[in-house]
Design a protein around this nucleic acid. Structure first.
Lengths: 152, 152
DNA sequence: TACACTGTTTATAAAGATTATAAAGTAATA
DNA sequence: TATTACTTTATAATCTTTATAAACAGTGTA
């Protein structure tokens, strides 16, 4: 990881903590650790991933604490919850807008950017009469690793 | 409901049963009833909705039967499973390709059509190296009913 | 018809993720 | 310090979905 990236995630954590302060949410050691893990995580972890990752630092932490704080973070807009159906939710630290490509074989999630799909929202609003707030989109397929495996 | 629509859903059910025959899936009374309910349903029901709706006709039917057969239908491509996170899956009889607009207030789901987003898939493939198979997208907002309620 | 084979349903238990509850702990404030 | 509100912990409960095993039904064959 380059120095730039280190600084980026440091700043992101700092910004996130500032957001908490401004919103009047207490910064507990657990919250700090969960946020820190989310910021530096590239893997879109589940609540259980986070729980397990922080087991060393907080041997007594409850799963409920993880869930509670992820909900708090979501409510103040720091974290996005990704719900891919059959399996457990994944949590994504909010940086810039992006979509996800999901490997149907190994579950890997990769970010990609795409210019906004505002037109879709406009059409939907027009056809259905809804007031649109946002949309979600994911793309599914097979990652390079798994594609190669299939050849053997 | 107009005569045209009645005929449409009749044909859809017939087509679906034909698909089952061709695929070698037995058409049991329960399967017939579940399919029939799905075809004429405009509400994207959950497994439990279906279970409850058929309670009268099949007092002894097991929830597992509903789940099993929804899986069978999904595997032969008759039904699409919609997973919107925190709540239970919803099941959608497959007709033509369409997307969904979901009311964040009352949960109502409305279909809308939009010309394919092939370009998104192409970009994702190019950027990530994935072999793309499909995508999903939903639009969220507030339906007219709920918008009106908010004014009072 | 009788028999065996296969797929299906039922009833129930089990699994897994998430939420609810109550008690104990901690920080902020008067 | 005393009070109050918020947070964490531990645990139980809930809810959806899947697994399992026994009973049942349909089909084909001798």
């Amino acid at each position: 990881m380059s120095h730039t990236h280190v600084h980026e995630s440091h700043d992101q954590l700092k910004d996130a903590l500032d957001t908490l302060k401004q919103t009047g949410v207490r910064i507990t050691p657990q919250r700090h650790a969960i946020l820190e893990f989310l910021v530096q995580s590239m893997t879109h972890p589940t609540a259980d991933d986070i729980y397990k990752a922080l087991e060393g630092k907080f041997p007594n932490m409850s799963v409920a604490t993880v869930y509670n704080n992820l909900r708090v973070f979501r409510e103040v807009g720091l974290v996005k919850e990704l719900t891919y159906g059959d399996t457990s939710s994944r949590f994504d630290f909010v940086t810039t807008e992006h979509y996800h490509v999901i490997c149907e074989s190994c579950g890997k999630i990769v970010d990609f950017h795409y210019p906004g799909l505002d037109e879709v929202e406009q059409l939907a609003a027009h056809v259905t009469g809804f007031k649109i707030s946002h949309h979600r989109m994911e793309v599914y397929g097979t990652c390079q690793n798994c594609s190669h495996k299939d050849l053997h």
